[in-house]
Structure formats: C-alpha cells, structure tokens
Amino acid sequence: MKTILGIIMCFGIFDAAHATVLDGEILRQNGQGQFVKLDTDTSFAVGADTFDDDNLYAFDEDQNIELQTSIGVDIGGVNGAITAGTVVASHYVFFDSLSGIHIGTVLFDAPILGIAAFQDTMGATDFLANTSVKYISTELRGLEQGDMVWVDDEDPNRLWVYWAGSSPGDYIRVFTEKSPGAFMM
C-alpha cells in the first residue's frame, strides 16, 4: 500500500553535467503532456508560469553534497529532518500547467531520503540548487491544497505525484541518497 501524505507533501551524473533523474512518466492526465528531464547546462527560468504546459518536469541540482547542518523536510527524513553528515543529491520536480490534473512518477538512481514541499523548507534548502537555473516567484513554491506526493513503498527510488495544476504550478525539491553516478562535492 502506498503512503499518501495529503497536502504536505531529485541524481548521479556520469560527468559534471549529466544526470541522475533517470526517467519519469505521466500515467493519467487531462492534457497532452509528457515527462521532460531538463538539462541544466542550458539556462532557463522556473516559476511564475514560465512553462504553462501539461508536462511533468524534473532536473538535477547539487549532487553528492555532505550536509554541514541538518535540513528540514516535509516528507521523510528522521523526525522531519535529514541530519548533518548525510551525503545527498538534490532534484527539482514541477508541473506548471495552466489548468489540469495528472498522476505520474519520477525515477531516481538512488533512494529518496526526503522531500521539501512547502516554501519554508524549499527556501531553507536553496543552497543546494547550484545550477544555471533562475528560480523566480520563489514565494509561491510548494504544493497547493489537495496535491499529493509519496515515495513508492516497493521502490524507494520512485516518486509519485498527484497534482492539480494552476498558476503558478506545483514545485518540490527531492533529496536522495548519494548518487552512484555523480561526483562527490
């Protein structure tokens, strides 16, 4: 049985620019979207309706970083935190639809440790972004009421999303264990 966490509700690289979000898919939606893994070697902006389509997006942020201090998470962790000394890989997952609902998955190359799903936890972990991506409308990040995210009980590398998109969209940061294919920072 999958654990669904209501409204509370990304690794390795074979060289410095390649990735560890392995794959994803949209299983059901009322649109024509698909899963898209974005390449952070190319600059782009995320937030404030910059995409406005039916796709489910993910991209890798900092990889294999040893945390100097504990970080708070909204899902997972131990007592709502990932402890200092843990090596994590960070990933951003989002849906920036004009309006629509979809159910989908994102697969990572290492088990998911925790998820930042609200503005406070996302803002506190922005130091793990370190990409050429421009994050805009950061005060509106996170999930909206009724959105759900959960880790697959049978595959801890798989994230499930059930999101109803509207402006400005749904945004989360996913932390995984050390990526076997990424560089250590």
Results as ranks from 00 to 15, higher is better:
residue 89 A to F: 01
residue 92 Y to V: 14
residue 174 V to K: 00
residue 99 S to N: 01
residue 181 G to Q: 00
residue 4 I to G: 05
residue 180 P to A: 05
residue 42 T to Q: 05
residue 1 M to K: 13
residue 119 Q to F: 15
residue 95 F to Q: 11
residue 94 F to D: 13
residue 161 V to F: 09
residue 132 S to E: 07
residue 177 E to P: 01
residue 109 D to H: 00
residue 178 K to P: 02
residue 157 N to W: 01
residue 148 M to N: 11
residue 148 M to W: 09
residue 140 L to N: 09
residue 57 Y to G: 07
residue 35 F to A: 01
residue 76 G to D: 02
residue 71 I to Q: 11
residue 106 V to C: 04
residue 104 G to S: 04
residue 122 M to Q: 08
residue 72 G to I: 10
residue 66 E to Q: 12
residue 164 A to V: 15
residue 106 V to K: 10
residue 78 V to S: 07
residue 156 P to I: 14
residue 60 D to C: 08
residue 127 F to Y: 05
residue 94 F to C: 11
residue 63 Q to D: 11
residue 105 T to Q: 07
residue 117 A to H: 11
residue 69 T to P: 00
residue 157 N to V: 07
residue 130 N to V: 07
residue 38 L to R: 02
residue 13 I to C: 09
residue 26 I to W: 08
residue 110 A to G: 14
residue 8 I to M: 11
residue 50 T to I: 15
residue 65 I to C: 06
residue 22 L to G: 03
residue 147 D to R: 08
residue 95 F to V: 09
residue 112 I to H: 00
residue 54 D to K: 08
residue 101 I to C: 13
residue 126 D to R: 05
residue 46 V to P: 03
residue 112 I to L: 00
residue 27 L to H: 13
residue 145 Q to K: 03
residue 142 G to T: 02
residue 174 V to H: 00
residue 123 G to V: 08
residue 174 V to E: 00
residue 16 A to D: 12
residue 57 Y to V: 10
residue 153 D to F: 03
residue 143 L to I: 13
residue 109 D to Q: 03
residue 165 G to A: 13
residue 64 N to T: 03
residue 156 P to K: 15
residue 25 E to F: 08
residue 98 L to G: 08
residue 45 A to P: 13
residue 62 D to I: 15
residue 79 N to K: 04
residue 22 L to Q: 10
residue 112 I to E: 04
residue 74 D to S: 07
residue 20 T to N: 06
residue 136 I to A: 07
residue 5 L to N: 07
residue 132 S to L: 09
residue 151 V to L: 13
residue 32 Q to S: 12
residue 149 V to A: 05
residue 132 S to A: 12
residue 107 L to D: 06
residue 41 D to Q: 11
residue 8 I to P: 05
residue 49 D to C: 14
residue 6 G to I: 08
residue 134 K to F: 08
residue 171 Y to H: 13
residue 181 G to Y: 01
residue 158 R to V: 12
residue 82 I to V: 03
residue 115 I to C: 00
residue 120 D to Q: 11
residue 182 A to R: 00
residue 143 L to D: 13
residue 3 T to A: 14
residue 107 L to K: 10
residue 105 T to R: 03
